[in-house]
């Protein structure tokens, strides 16, 4: 009888150890997953209370736009900080993005309409760049330039935008736009193709109108 009790106690102890290990493992993985998601500052789609399309809510709204310095197509360094005092639309796009091609002509028109009020657009290409292969890199830059030319983009086009993925909330979909006011604060963000009217409303918000 005494031997039975000892065996049962040992088995119960092993069972409890396994159950604890399973729980601890699950908790660890859950926390790691939550940390990974938080690190990329994922944006959310929030249902419209009026029954319309879900609205894009960026965690950057109301916060200073993450600073960056990227190269333009001419190889010049362009920094967001140099646009302080202007309202800026940071438009992430890519040559392979069909909806971007619909949106870009609207941006070109809106830029010429509001430039005099202190508005600028930075078109940030998220196309992959092969930094290890000079020839490929040169071809990739040429492709971006050719695409920008076909789309008649009149504002600065910056490259290597994928490097801004983490500070700008993942950049999981193109186009993605951030509207920055004259103080450098993100006042609105748009995910995917919306409408020219929506973009214009957000430009006015960035201009403080």
């Amino acid at each position: 009888m005494k031997r039975n009790s000892i065996v049962i106690t040992i088995v119960l102890f092993i069972l409890a150890t396994f159950a604890w290990a399973g729980w601890a493992n699950w908790e660890y993985r859950k926390q790691a997953a939550e940390k990974a998601l938080a690190a990329t500052a994922q944006a959310e789609l929030v249902p419209d209370t009026n029954g319309g399309m879900p609205q894009y809510v960026s965690p950057l709204k109301g916060k200073p736009a993450p600073t960056f310095t990227l190269e333009d197509l001419g190889g010049n360094k362009v920094s967001l900080a140099s646009y302080k005092g202007k309202a800026v639309l940071i438009n992430f796009w890519a040559t392979w993005c069909g909806p971007c091609k619909i949106e870009t002509p609207w941006l070109v028109e809106l830029r010429s309409q509001y430039a005099a009020k202190g508005f600028e657009i930075l078109g940030v290409s998220t196309d992959d760049l092969d930094r290890d292969d000079k020839q490929k890199l040169s071809d990739e830059k040429k492709d971006i330039a050719r695409s920008a030319q076909q789309l008649k983009i009149s504002y600065p086009v910056l490259i290597d935008g994928a490097t801004l993925s983490t500070p700008y909330g993942g950049l999981d979909e193109m186009p993605t736009s951030f509207f920055v006011d004259r103080n450098g604060t993100v006042v609105a963000a748009q995910l995917g193709l919306t409408s020219k009217a929506d973009i214009e409303a957000n430009i006015k918000k960035a201009l403080g109108e």
């Binding site: 088995v11 092993i14 069972l15 396994f18 159950a19 290990a21 399973g22 729980w23 493992n25 699950w26 993985r29 859950k30 790691a32 997953a33 939550e34």
Partner: peptide, 18 residues
């Protein structure tokens, strides 16, 4: 038997967040 069930439960739980 319970030990085996507990192990399966623990490994299934660990997959959830991924």
């Amino acid at each position: 038997s319970w030990l085996a069930v507990a192990s399966i439960f623990a490994s299934a739980q660990s997959d959830l967040p991924a």
